[in-house]
Amino acid sequence: MEIIKVAIKLGLTSFGGPAAHIGYFREEYVQKRKWLDDKLYADIVALCQFLPGPASSQVGISIGLLRGGILGGFLSWLGFTLPSVIILMLFATFVLNTGSFESGWIHGLKIVAVAVVAHALLGMQKSLAPDKVRISIAIACAILTLLIPTAVGQISIIVAAGIFGYLYYKREVVEPAPKMALTFGKKTGIISWILFLGLLISLPLLKPFFSSVYYSIFDTYYRVGSIVFGGGHVVLPMLEREVEIAPDVFLAGYGAAQAVPGPLFTLAGYLGQMTAGIPGALVAVIAMFLPSFLLVIGTLPFWSYIRSKRGIQSALKGVNAAVVGILLAALYDPVFTSAVTNTLDFIIVLITFTLLVVYKLAPIKIVLVSILLGAVVHLI
């Protein structure tokens, strides 16, 4: 019960995106409750940056696994995720019932996404592409992402960046990782990897034999959750391409996701409900996060060994730089091109970006400001 209580508390209060979530987790789990030390926490964060999927959610799942086994991992995820899923599903219901996609406050939600993604881009660049070489990788990947706007193209770009990183950084030294005390071993990890890869391969192959919309949703969101590196903001371009939904509807949900605490991947709840009601929302959320569970359970027993390999860390540097580039491309298309249609829209972007970056207002306040300004502009 302690695990889910703490997770719900974090799920209700963790605003600000993945980087902020990592800070909230450290304060709660390391400093306050002392469930683990800083060195082990840093290693878990490194692991979750290495894996595709929502990094902050995976950190929470990992700590739950260490504290209470597989059930502890599930409860940690449930508590952290459920509040924002419920709020976004309620938002989807409201928008569907009112049809108010063109209202000023909805447009304000779309505009605030520009400021939030730009802010995330700056933060990720400082940590993931801090030097000339990795900035160059990021720019090249952004250009390629815009020129090849497909899911296969994005995966190919990430793989190519990983190969370059391996070749360029392979001589750098990596410190050995601390060992983790787990209630499950390598056999469970191998089974988890088999399930992960089995679903990733079989779901698209079997799709022609199933006409169910729920199967299609599960296939789409499982695939997206399996191959997106870099966390919530980077899922934006792939979801925008994979999910058949109008850009206005999509960006309204993305903007709303900034106003709620918890992981940005809960946007799946909003999109799933828009596609197939409450059942669609539940299927989308489960499919989006299931790969994270399987990957974390599959990798934790082997992480101490993997972490010490120089080649893995070298490739990861290239992959992380590619993530920055993909996010840069997403900032332009679809975020900027769909949200900013005139001078007043761009003025709102400048105001919200300044409040977020310079004055460091909480994201929820930025969202409210953008909603208010969008409503005012709509009345002019």
Results as ranks from 00 to 15, higher is better:
100 S>E: 11
93 T>D: 00
122 L>T: 15
111 I>H: 01
117 V>N: 02
134 R>S: 09
96 L>E: 04
140 A>I: 12
100 S>P: 01
100 S>V: 08
104 G>M: 11
88 L>T: 05
120 A>K: 04
86 I>S: 03
90 L>N: 02
127 S>N: 12
139 I>F: 09
138 A>S: 14
95 V>W: 04
126 K>H: 12
131 D>R: 05
100 S>M: 12
122 L>V: 15
101 F>W: 13
127 S>L: 15
115 A>Y: 06
103 S>H: 12
125 Q>A: 14
112 V>R: 00
132 K>L: 15
120 A>L: 10
134 R>I: 05
140 A>H: 03
119 H>A: 13
89 M>T: 14
118 A>Q: 07
132 K>R: 15
94 F>H: 10
99 G>V: 13
135 I>Q: 14
94 F>M: 11
136 S>F: 06
92 A>T: 10
110 K>R: 13
131 D>W: 05
114 V>Y: 00
92 A>G: 03
114 V>M: 01
100 S>I: 10
137 I>D: 02
91 F>V: 15
125 Q>D: 09
104 G>A: 13
109 L>C: 10
139 I>S: 00
124 M>E: 03
87 I>F: 06
101 F>I: 02
116 V>E: 04
111 I>M: 03
139 I>V: 14
117 V>I: 15
109 L>H: 04
117 V>R: 03
114 V>D: 01
90 L>V: 15
115 A>D: 09
104 G>R: 12
122 L>E: 14
88 L>M: 10
115 A>E: 07
103 S>Q: 14
108 G>W: 06
117 V>Y: 03
93 T>I: 10
116 V>C: 07
113 A>Q: 06
127 S>Q: 14
107 H>G: 08
90 L>F: 08
136 S>M: 08
126 K>S: 13
101 F>E: 05
117 V>E: 03
134 R>G: 01
91 F>Y: 09
